[in-house]
Design a protein around this nucleic acid. Sequence first.
DNA 1: TATGAATGAGTGTTCATTCAT
DNA 2: AATGAATGAACACTCATTCAT
Lengths: 205, 205, 205, 205
Amino acid sequence: MGIGTKHLSKKSREQQIVIAADTVLQQVGVNNFTIDQVVETLDIAKGTVYKYYKSKDELLSMVSIKALRLLLDYFKLTVNGKEGGAESIKAMLMSCYQYAQSYPEYFELIVYMERPEFHSQMDAYASISAEITDFVKTHISKEQQLGTINKELKPLTVTYVLWGSCMGMMNFIESKRNFIKNVDDIDQRELIATYAGLLASGMEA
Amino acid sequence: MGIGTKHLSKKSREQQIVIAADTVLQQVGVNNFTIDQVVETLDIAKGTVYKYYKSKDELLSMVSIKALRLLLDYFKLTVNGKEGGAESIKAMLMSCYQYAQSYPEYFELIVYMERPEFHSQMDAYASISAEITDFVKTHISKEQQLGTINKELKPLTVTYVLWGSCMGMMNFIESKRNFIKNVDDIDQRELIATYAGLLASGMEA
Amino acid sequence: MGIGTKHLSKKSREQQIVIAADTVLQQVGVNNFTIDQVVETLDIAKGTVYKYYKSKDELLSMVSIKALRLLLDYFKLTVNGKEGGAESIKAMLMSCYQYAQSYPEYFELIVYMERPEFHSQMDAYASISAEITDFVKTHISKEQQLGTINKELKPLTVTYVLWGSCMGMMNFIESKRNFIKNVDDIDQRELIATYAGLLASGMEA
Amino acid sequence: MGIGTKHLSKKSREQQIVIAADTVLQQVGVNNFTIDQVVETLDIAKGTVYKYYKSKDELLSMVSIKALRLLLDYFKLTVNGKEGGAESIKAMLMSCYQYAQSYPEYFELIVYMERPEFHSQMDAYASISAEITDFVKTHISKEQQLGTINKELKPLTVTYVLWGSCMGMMNFIESKRNFIKNVDDIDQRELIATYAGLLASGMEA
DNA sequence: TATGAATGAGTGTTCATTCAT
DNA sequence: AATGAATGAACACTCATTCAT
């Protein structure tokens, strides 16, 4: 038993567990993530984890908040202070690619959280997810008012389109590493750039 | 042991097993699919299945061939005899949505087969997968020659963009059934139509 | 579920499992040993066994520690307080025979543990194994200093010779029970005595 | 189905199967040997193998005849035309080591055949085994008459001692590759030479 | 609040042997 | 004599979750 780790404040304990879960995630990925590893990392009892988080998935959803927050930062950095227009849409999609490359485990986690089989409520995840949605939606609205994006498009709809298709593209790139041999003819970056370009130009006013 | 099912011809048995696997798939989905269920469905010995298919995943890959072939049919039906242009691209994407709605378990299976973790060769899957890729690629080339699609786009690249992003959109729609409550504000059909429209118009010459 | 067996202390449980494994071993032998039998014997959950021992082989290695420790005791009893010389070497080899007769399952287990296919670390086994090696080596050195054993022989080398050849002899005796019918012409005891005598006299100073 | 392989004479078929079994053995070793592989190698039906050999082990015992015959050749080559005496005993043991190094799969097979668990009769194996026994026994008798080997030793007993202990030594060398780290301090050849030397000198008149 | 031992259903895979044709 | 499809028992190992202390 670790020294000095007993009886932390509720909040400290929560954070401690999430940080440990994050550590484990980075080491083994979502698909090999186990509560046992978290417990071993912290040297606390398994029951303690379940005191704070109802299930493994709820704990993972807490980690995914960090992941999504980081992604939101990527989006903000991409959009702020830059010229807007459809070009900014393309830039956001590219930054999503960059994110997936830099934090593959986080990306994998997000994919995991987005799976239909995910029955639980996962309010926390939903909340930050909504924040991202809002950010993108707002950005689109703004651009529409500036006249750079087609005003007939519903911002929320477009946001979902961007999110869904982008996740799919990232996933495709990952999986094709093993499957299609001649995928190398096409540079990953070129692929994602083409994707982003098509979507962006399709949105132009 | 069922009567009259012994000593089928090799081909019959192969088909029988794949059909049973398909049946099981429709009932429980990929993620709960087990060889035991297939065996129980047919009332044959487990070893028999492994005589014909080396592993669970190889068997699933045989089922996925049916799934992909069906999807290819959807694409062909959509494209043939219709006016072409970017409009035909949109139609293909919409037909993909239709497919995912009609055969959710098949769609789920395809997603499963596309996972990076899928190490095995799965030649059969790769083959039909390539067939679909070819079909789409050829269609795009044709349209480019007709002047309806931007000639600067590489057909293969675009094909991958369509496939990856489309899979992502289907996935998104599926997952949002459980997650975001207010996704209902947006009609699924509207969402996919917007996605397809954006991409298609982005590809116009 | 057995009553009163829940929540033993960690050490108790460990011992309990090893004892049960030992029991199973005595009943069916190494080659038919299964975790399921251990679990059934104790009426505990399978997972419990795997909480304490990473694998079937690790559990077996714990049992083999008992087996080897017992063998070491045989050696010690044989050597201590007796006249030394090459005669003591012969006595050790004979005691090894006695051991194999008295604990055939243990002997079989040791053979199992010595197999090249045994990849895992099995530190525990290696440790007690080394202890035996040391004991014999030390005994040989001592006798060499007393001038009863040929000083040109390397103690460690001789130890390995004794171990390897002795294991072979035990094995031979076991196997010939089934194979060569007329082995009975030769008394087992005579056989092992001859073996031990030859080796011992070969080692004399 | 291979062409021209149907309806061979009984003897030809028997030989053909044993040769195929030998081939498989060399490729995968006893522990991974399966009837399926033999059948695949020959492209004949499984049932055919069982027509000629009652069990997998009986087939293996036929292969082991080749293995033992080869070993007997090694012994004969070692003994014939050389100076005799205890020295020839040492030479035989060394040639056994050489054999195990040159034909590890054969050696492994012999070990397999010698296991106590081997219930079947395996007459064929017993027969060639007896031939080797006889050869060694005769050699020992001869040397005893020449006065180089202690006449009080029973030739058959000594033969068994040589066989059993030698098998054990070979086995030991194999297994220690993985287990005892410092076994490298001792050269394999030195180990076996020491063993052979001890036994041989113990037998001297 | 924290513990942590215990649970136990779940599953993919192997292969020697049989027997109806 | 040859076939070869079918058998089916066997087994190691996982891990999210619970609950008595």
